[in-house]
Amino acid sequence: MSDEKIVEMKHLVKNYGAGDFQTKVLKGIDMTIYRNDFIAVMGPSGSGKTTLLNILSTIDKPTLGSVLLGGRELTGISNKELSVLRRDKIGLVFQDYNLLDTMSLMDNIALPLSLNGSPAAECRAKAERLAAMFGLSGHLNKYPYQLSGGQKQRGATCRALITKPEIIFADEPTGALDSKSGKDLLDCLKRVNDSGQATVFMVTHDPFCASYAKDVYILSDGAIKCRISRGESRKEFYDRIIDVQTSMGGDFSCE
């Protein structure tokens, strides 16, 4: 494991509502993500998983506490700087793919890089390399409506990776996929993580999906209840996650 800190969360608090009607969604989260980590956050419905992801991916802001991305404090920076940060440092993978149906898969993958002003040849070469890694080489000229859910999600992951972000935030990436497609995607994600190309922070309700991570954090009622680290076998890791889930009770379904 690398010592380089990518994200640092310090006493992260998020409240919704005002006055007496305030609901505490996050109650002081402290966590550090190092380069090349693969972290999964699990938790029952309403535990604050999505709120945490939204804050980390700069879509939402915390009520209290701070988030440091690459050593830079996120709270208090302007929207314009946030856009640049989101563009250069963060890659996002959504449950519903969010590919643009107006363009081909090739254009979708290359888009962030071309908007950054990279030369066309570089955009193309990188998109093709990533597509090959994710088994999409034969589909580059197709449009999203011509692709399966799994192919779309792998395409979206390529798009997230093309700018070589510091970290990939994935929100229930297998949520809309069948088990085979979900497994394919996770294999790909694991491969890029193992080869040192990406740090991944993933929110999921699925223990099978979480078992691909190196560490699993269990979030409950706005606080981290426990951390489970992977051993040698993924099967054994999966069993441990299930055990913790069973011991905690509650509904771990998608929020």
Binding site: D101, T102, M103, D107, L111, S114, L115, P119, A120, A121
Partner: peptide, 22 residues
């Protein structure tokens, strides 16, 4: 124009040209 990636991957062209074609 959209097939010519050297042209398309410049400025914001990938967004608006694809949108026009669509």
């Amino acid at each position: 124009l959209s097939s010519n990636k050297r042209f398309l991957y410049r400025k914001q062209r990938a967004i608006w040209i694809n949108s026009l074609i669509f």
